[in-house]
Design a protein around this nucleic acid. Sequence first.
DNA 1: TCCACTATCACTTTTGAAGCGC
DNA 2: AGCGCTTCAAAAGTGATAGTGG
Length: 330
Amino acid sequence: MDLRKLQVGGPFAEYLMKLATHKPLTRDRVCVSTISTTSPESSDKSSSDMETPSSYLDVCQAYAQSSSSGNSGRHSYEEDGSEKSVLGETDDCIQQINGAIVLSLVEAKLWYRFLELGTEMIINKTGRRMFPYLEFSLRGVDPVGLYDVIFDIIPASGKCFKFLNNRWMPIGKKEDEFKNHPFKHPDSPQVGAAWMMRKISFDKVRLSNKPGTGAGIFTLHTLQKYLVRISIVKHERDDELSVVEFPIRATTFIAVTAYNNRDVTKLKINSNPYSKGFRFPIKRMRNQSVEKRNTPSDRTFVNDEELKKRSVFCPIDHDASGFSEGRKFS
DNA sequence: TCCACTATCACTTTTGAAGCGC
DNA sequence: AGCGCTTCAAAAGTGATAGTGG
C-alpha cells in the first residue's frame, strides 16, 4: 500500500505521510519467527533459542520437516495455478538472528494448520473478527526507543479465487482494493522494553465487505487472497520515522462470506472457544428437531445416525484441540 | 439454475454491574 | 468507606441454515 495515497484527515494523516517517507531498515535485520509461543514455558524456550542461532534454526527446520512429512497435502497455488510447497520455501523461518528484530508469531502451529487447508476468513457487513487472531512477541528492538506497532492487511495475490474440487483455484484478475487505513496498536507509542515485555495482540481487528467502516475494521473483497503485515515504527531523535515491515505469510487467507472448505470449518469449531456450541451437534440438532416436530407441518423423526450424517462434525481431533492448550481462552 | 450474500437461530464465552461479607 | 469475591444477566462472538437476489 502506498501510504502517500491515503486520504485521511487529522493528525493520523500527518503520521501516515511521515511514515511514507520513513528510512527503511535493511532486509537482513528482519526476522519473523513462527515458533509457537503458546505457553510461558515455550515462550521462555523460544527466547532462549533466539540467543543461540543454530538451535533456533534447528527448531524452524524441524518444525518444517515434521509438518510437511505428516501431511502430503501441504500446498498452495501460484497465480498460474501451479502448486508449490508452502513450508519448503517459507520466509517466515528466517536466517538472520544476530542484531535482528525478531517477531515471534503466537499460535504459529495453528496458523500453519489453517494455511495447509487454505485459510478462510469470514467477512460481513458489520465486521467479523479474525480467527485465529494475530498475536506476537517482539525482540531485538531498542529498549529505550519509542515505537509504534501497526497492523495492516495487504493483497497476497493479483488473482481472485474459486473453490473447485476441494481446492482454491485462481480464476481471474482481482478487483481494485478498498482504501483501508493501517491500524495502530492502541498502546502505541511505547518504549521498546515495554513492547518486548508482553505479547502484542490484535484480537479486536475486524474484517468487513462494506466500505466506510470504522477504525480497526478492514474492508476486503470476497474470494481474494490477503495476508497480514505488521510494521514496527521507530520514532527517531530528529523527528523522523524508521520502519521495519513484517509481511507474515503464515497469515495468508481468502476472504469469504460463508465457509467453502469443511475441513477449515471443523478446525475453526475445534479451536475457537466461541464455537464450542458446534462441537456436539447431536444435542443441538436434537433440540432443533424437537422444536420442528412440535410444529404441525413437520413430524418427521430424525435419529442420531441421521444427525451424524447431516453434520460436518467429526469427533474432536486431539491434534487440533492440542493447539488450544495454553491459549488465554482455554 | 447457480451461487454469493444476508438475516436469524441456538449455543458458548466474556464482561460488567450488583450484592455480600470482612 | 474500601476492598475482594461471587453471582447473574446482558452483550458479544461462533457456525449453520434458509431465504434472497443478481
